[in-house]
């Protein structure tokens, strides 16, 4: 169904552009985009690989930091009381406005892009993980303690499994955000990657190539979201 809707949209788009004779640098028809994508087939590989690596590295680092931070907040009530409001408030920071700082710090290396990907993907994970840990019922915890569970057992057998569905919900969002973050980073300063490619295309008024890279980015984001969904099935009943 979704596929049919998508096809219909593309068809209408194609027709509109042809009927109203819109200049290709304003809006190229989907067929032009496909042709441009095909013509540039030798170029995509390196850019895709670059963006993919940055997004994956960023996501992994986000997960690690978010995990450590959430566990610390689970253990210490004071820490949670101090940090939680900050996390919520930080949601309102326009991430795109502070992204350039990482280009200044890490220059044109891969790490400036990874850092921006971390910035974009970190909050969904840490917030959902926190919500997950907070949803552990006090009664279940008391039950575990009374049955003789150690701190580690309570974490492994109660707290972590309780937080898992929420964690995956956050991770799914974060996966898409990591791709966006990597692209933004590349847009701001890079020599390779889909964001860099899209920016160059945009500067050169190669709108068909711009759309082609956006299309590839969408597919990449979707693939990551589906990968997380698939992974979740192995963990959550």
């Amino acid at each position: 169904m979704t596929f049919l809707v998508l096809l219909a949209v593309l068809l209408v788009w194609e027709l509109m552009v042809r009927i109203f004779d819109i200049a290709p640098y304003i809006l190229p028809p989907p067929s032009d985009v496909l042709i441009a994508m095909w013509d540039a087939r030798d170029l995509w590989g390196q850019h895709i690989w670059m963006t993919w690596s940055e997004a994956m590295l960023g996501l992994a680092i986000s997960m690690l930091i978010a995990f450590l931070m959430s566990v610390a907040m689970l253990r210490s009530l004071q820490l949670r009381k101090a940090l939680y409001p900050l996390l919520i408030v930080s949601q309102t920071i326009p991430l795109i406005a502070i992204s350039p700082i990482f280009i200044i710090w890490f220059d044109y290396t891969i790490w400036s892009k990874v850092a921006v990907a971390v910035l974009w993907s970190f909050f969904p994970i840490v917030i959902s993980l926190n919500e997950g840990f907070r949803s552990v019922s006090p009664e279940r915890r008391e039950m575990m303690i009374s049955l003789g569970a150690s701190r580690l057992q309570i974490f492994r057998l109660l707290e972590w499994p309780t937080a898992l569905p929420s964690f995956f919900a956050g991770l799914k969002m974060a996966a898409a955000y990591a791709v966006i973050g990597a692209t933004v980073g590349e847009w701001l300063g890079a020599e390779r990657g889909l964001g860099f490619f899209a920016r160059r295309a945009s500067n050169n008024m190669q709108t068909d190539l711009l759309f082609a890279s956006v299309f590839i980015l969408c597919v990449m984001g979707l693939l990551m979201v589906y990968a997380v969904k698939y992974m979740k099935r192995g963990f959550v009943r």
Binding site: E139, R140, E142, S146
Partner: peptide, 12 residues
């Protein structure tokens, strides 16, 4: 051993 009032079975 203490058995709390609410449902404390682990659903998974």
């Amino acid at each position: 051993v203490y058995m709390p009032q609410s449902d404390t079975l682990l659903p998974w």
